[in-house]
Design a protein around this nucleic acid. Structure first.
Length: 279
DNA sequence: CAAGAATCCTGTCAGC
DNA sequence: TGCTGACAGGATTCTT
């Protein structure tokens, strides 16, 4: 479930397991992901010390001591498994394996191969072509009512679609857009242009709160995953509307006034909302 | 130019 | 049990 909070959670788990350690062995099993991985990636990683991690939107960087960074995007189905060397049980679709000091073994698994791996100069991380057009980080001060209003002004697309546009705000995905619009009481069908202004003032803190809560939930559940064969980034999370079609809306009086949570399709993707609470 | 559709790929699940 | 079709957390590229 890789939206921003999941990427952050995965990265923190990897950081705890790998930061400061030297990569003793790396294997690229297949590099034909969303974009081709560098063919010599494994050789470039082997022998390097991992100095730190940094996230940007749904991407993160594993920084190395030779001034290069491994760029990672999880796509739709990407995940990382952390295990002691020799104790890993999952091997299908494991495209990259990293073994490090301390008997650590990390596997990048991505069945759909919508994710990507690349090697980039650490100083140029943000100029990578995949990151160059990204909008503001939603949890930074650069993302505020003024900047969001400016990005939405004049847009005739539904706000749901606009928030999925990574040039408007970078890191939201299908789940947290529904959650944030519910929290801000804005209909996913409302045209983005009409959200600029007062509604954007509500939407910004709603987005920040939803993402922050999800990161906290991931961080707290992460402890359970730091164990042999642990899988990072998948954890139980209670969403208010996502995946809850037909269920009662927690803040509405119920039938007949409110029919509960509705699912509609916008730009080919599901949106969940309460037609009473969200206008 | 903006907005919507098609596309990449595999796994899972509901329905028959 | 096995088959089929719909659908899935993303983001680029192609059409209208």
């Amino acid at each position: 479930m890789p939206e921003l909070p999941e990427v952050e959670t995965v990265m923190r788990g990897l950081s705890a397991a790998l930061t400061g350690r030297v990569i003793t062995r790396a294997v690229l099993n297949r590099g034909d992901l969303r974009f081709p991985a560098p063919p010599n990636l494994a050789a470039q990683l082997t022998g390097r010390r991992i100095t730190g991690f940094r996230r940007r939107a749904k991407y993160f960087f594993m920084q190395l001591d030779d001034a290069n960074s491994l760029l990672v995007h999880l796509g739709m189905s990407g995940r990382f498994l952390i295990a002691e060397r020799g104790r890993n049980t999952v091997t299908a679709h494991e495209h990259l394996v990293i073994e490090a000091e301390g008997n650590v073994r990390v596997g990048f698994v991505d069945p759909r191969r919508f994710g990507c791996l690349d090697l980039v100069a650490t100083l140029g991380e943000n100029t990578h072509r995949l990151l160059a057009t990204l909008g503001p980080e939603p949890l930074s001060d650069d993302f505020n009512a003024a900047t969001l209003s400016a990005a939405l002004a004049g847009k005739n697309t539904p706000i749901k679609t606009a928030l999925l546009d990574q040039t408007v705000v970078a890191g939201l995905g299908n789940i947290y857009v529904s959650e944030a619009l519910y929290a801000a009481q804005i209909s996913p069908r409302r045209l983005a242009g009409s959200v600029a202004g007062a509604r954007a003032k509500r939407l910004v803190p709603a987005i920040k709160a939803v993402l922050t809560a999800a990161i906290c939930a991931g961080g707290s559940s992460l402890r359970d995953y730091v164990q042999p064969d642990g899988e990072l980034g998948y954890f139980q999370h209670a969403w208010a509307v996502y995946g809850r079609e037909g269920e009662a809306c927690t803040t509405c009086p119920g039938p007949p006034a409110c029919a509960g949570i509705t699912r509609i399709v916008q730009s080919g993707r599901s949106s969940f909302f309460c037609a009473i609470r969200q206008r």
